[in-house]
Design a protein around this nucleic acid. Structure first.
Lengths: 220, 220
DNA sequence: CTATTTCATATTGGATCCAATTTACAATAT
DNA sequence: ATATTGTAAATTGGATCCAATATGAAATAG
């Protein structure tokens, strides 16, 4: 039998919709650290009962994005300076290795998409989108490695520091500097120079770390 | 006012009890990969409703220990050989760095506890406990680093490969070899030789990886 | 007899209800 | 006025119920 099949994309579960929305709101800083997540309020916002909301909160807690106390509910977790530094250390350890392994596997299409990402990043005038475009650029290159577990872990690390990173991008010349570094990383990838791409990525991350640590007091 | 206060340790929530129990059962291999987790059955086992069970399953999924399909429920996730290799690669990258930073911070008490761990490991005749004692040993040393985020990530990586690692320990001379390597790592720590401890840890992990890859077909 | 369809059963997703606990605030005593 | 106590409201944790979907077996057509 031949038939134009339509992807009857099963609507996502309420729980996953709420999870995605809350995660996005947290990493973008729309709900501030320390702010409580009221189950009833969220349930009303999404026209659901509290059950899917609680499942979403359980998942957020497992991701470290919220902390819950019994009978007191969940609050958005923040990072101490020490904790933020630790996550940057972690990223500086793992991301260079991932891009090093990704470079020999990058297709023309990957490089083209990455170029579009840094172009969009460098020309965007909406600070609200910088964080997203920045992540797109790196994720596109990393994805070529095929290392799904590493990619997931990097996503989690990014989720936790994203708020602070975004604040960093709009301050001083963070945006311009990030842009120049993106181009350098991209060129190393185009040239197939894995070691250099790894080294530039490491510098990109430790540089962000240093500049964040200098300004962190002003951010909180 | 003086009074002998008793810590009225609030009993943990049903959801967290179920989560801990399921996690333990999965990493110890008591529920095999591919096996479905029936909400009703689990709820009966713990004398609760399905609500806490579902929250526990949500968290397990976020940890990557189960996979769920809508209206079909959750099954214990397994690892392909490629995925297992990737996780060992990850561990070989991060654990040496953690122990390297931990060595200068190790107290006498830490070293003593680690010695007790490898002693217990080497003298235990219960294969069912080897996996636990092995983790104890490494966790004790890593914990001295104070790098909580790294420790959490390592725990997750261990959770995913624990089943296969345990199977590995009982095969061939995996147990004896692990034991010798533990002693060597421990001695490097006692001597304050961070670089050597890191290098031995890396070899310990890549060695386990190699031997697991040779036997993986027999394990599945 | 085999393949397809129908329909009852099992299972999960979500809503509503009740219990346990915390929180906010008024009432009271010092 | 301040601190303490008592109480009602708010909030979360959990149980029960209903809806949506999947599964498997019986019925039926070829």
């Amino acid at each position: 039998m031949k038939l134009n099949s339509v992807d009857i994309s099963k609507t996502a579960s309420a729980s996953s919709i709420v999870f995605d929305a809350l995660r996005k709101a947290i990493i973008e800083g729309d709900v501030k650290e320390g702010e409580p997540l009221r189950q009833d309020e969220i349930a009303r916002l999404f026209n659901t009962s509290r059950i899917p909301v609680r499942e979403a909160i359980s998942r957020l807690e497992e991701q470290g994005l919220v902390k819950t106390q019994r009978y007191k509910g969940a609050v958005v977790s923040g990072l101490s300076q020490t904790e933020a530094e630790e996550i940057f250390d972690f990223r500086a350890l793992i991301e260079p290795e991932v891009i090093r392994r990704a470079v020999p596997l990058m297709s023309q299409e990957t490089l083209e998409r990455a170029r579009e990402s840094w172009t969009a990043f460098s020309t965007s005038s909406e600070p609200m989108r910088w964080g997203e475009l920045n992540r797109d650029f790196h994720a596109t290159l990393y994805r070529a490695s095929g290392l799904q577990y590493h990619l997931d872990i990097i996503d989690n690390a990014m989720d936790r520091v994203d708020r602070y990173l975004r604040a960093q991008l709009v301050m001083s010349n963070g945006m311009q500097r990030a842009n120049e570094e993106h181009i350098a990383i991209w060129e190393a990838c185009v040239n197939g120079n894995a070691a250099q791409a790894a080294d530039l990525t490491r510098q990109h991350i430790t540089g962000a770390r240093e500049s964040l640590m200098q300004n962190i007091n002003g951010l909180r």
